[in-house]
Structure formats: structure tokens, C-alpha cells
Design a protein around this nucleic acid. Structure first.
Lengths: 104, 104
DNA sequence: TTCAAATATTTAAATGTTTCGATGTTTTAA
DNA sequence: TTAAAACATCGAAACATTTAAATATTTGAA
């Protein structure tokens, strides 16, 4: 439907993106945040993250921002609350890129 | 043969390890190094890395050290040369840990 | 044994990251 | 409209990372 080039674009992740996602994953607090998605119902509220991590609100905000900028999390406003959804598509693309590093 | 606990140890990767590998992957030069393993014959020589990256020898040495400390690369001495082998097992465990972040 | 090649370590500068306190913005509820 | 709850941004301190120059170590060859 969209041709070969489009297909490649949808599948491949460039090195800048791999670097950015890796950096987002290179922090204990952010790994903990991502692990909460399995325990909760596939979404997480900003306030819940604050309860889980022993960090101030600005620090939590900073970590969530890194994850959003890496597109691992999708933010959704709900009134004055902020809900995050795990972006499984980006996570899968990242995993694919890592799989490509393996031979054959 | 080794029981349940041993099995878990072999499969699970703790958060400190995930953090360390992610950090090792969060640099353009180090991603480039890992990508060379598919192009070469599953092993890479230190000197080849120096040719590929536009960095001084100490910088190359630093990056290779990060990858070795994350156990993504296994170093093998060959006379005064150093050969690296991609540690596919660790890479696979890391990928499994990331897959576990996804729901169900 | 001595020299040169290959790699590692040390040091220091530049830059980036993490964290918190203070403050700003947006939104709901009184 | 005002107060307060939820989140973001700013500024600064502490710490970590990247890089290169200088130097050290290890090893093979002469």
C-alpha cells in the first residue's frame, strides 16, 4: 500500500533513537516506573509514580519527561491529572533493533 | 538438574544490570561498535574499532571498556592484539527483560 | 635484551545528568 | 473569584560521562 520505503521507515529505528531510548532506560528510577505498568492496569498516574519513588515531585517530573521524550510513554491529560500509557510499539521497535545486533 | 532457583538466576536480570547495559548502549560510538559485529565475522579487533570511529585510541579503549563491563563484549587476548566477541547471551537476557516490560 | 606496536591508565577540561528548593501554570472545587 | 491540588520549569549543587594528551604496560620481533 505505501511501498517499500514507507515499510522500512516504519520498521527501522535510527541510531539516534536507539541512543535516546537506551539513555532513558539507563536509570533505576525510570526502570522502576516502567515496571509498574505490568502491576497496574497498563496505565500509570503521575501521582502514583510520586508515591512509588522516594523522590521529590520535580525529580519525578524530570524522569517522566525523559521517558516521554524517548516516546516510551504517552502522556494523556485528565483534568489536572496526568495519565501515562506505555508505548508498546516503540518498545517493540527498540527490541527489534537490539535483536538485529545479533548475528543471523 | 539445578532446580528452580538456579533456573531463575540464569534467566532474570536485576535492575542494576539492566541499568548498566542500557547505559552502555546509550552512546552513538558504542552502538556503532556493536553494529560492526554483523558486518564482520562475529568478532572485532580493537584496532578495527579505532579505524571505524573517529576517536583517539584512549577514547576507543574507554568505550570498549564500558561494553566489556556491561558484559556485552567478551575480550580475548591474541598476542598483543585484543579480539572482542559479542556476548549474545547477555544481549538476549537484556532483550528478555525488556520484553517483560510489555503487558501479558 | 631492546625496540616498537597494541592497548590501558591517568589526568584534566568540557559537558551532561540528577536532584531539590523555589516558583510558575493549569485546573477543579469551594 | 479565590484557594488549593497537580504538574512543570528554573536555578544551582553534586556528581557522572566523554574526550584527548601524556604516560604506562604488555607483548612480539629483531
Amino acid at each position: 500500500m505505501y511501498g517499500y520505503f514507507y515499510y522500512l521507515c516504519a520498521v527501522m529505528m535510527d541510531n539516534k533513537k536507539i541512543e535516546k531510548i537506551s539513555r532513558a532506560l539507563s536509570d533505576a528510577s525510570r526502570i522502576t516506573i516502567l515496571q509498574q505498568f505490568r502491576k497496574r492496569n497498563d496505565c500509570l498516574y503521575c501521582a502514583e509514580v510520586h508515591d512509588i519513588l522516594d523522590l521529590t515531585q520535580p525529580s519525578v517530573s524530570h524522569h517522566l519527561k525523559q521517558l516521554v521524550e524517548a516516546e516510551l510513554l504517552l502522556p494523556e491529560k485528565e483534568g489536572r491529572n496526568l495519565k501515562y500509557i506505555l508505548n508498546e510499539e516503540v518498545l517493540s521497535e527498540y527490541i527489534s533493533s537490539l535483536n538485529d545486533l545479533k548475528g543471523k
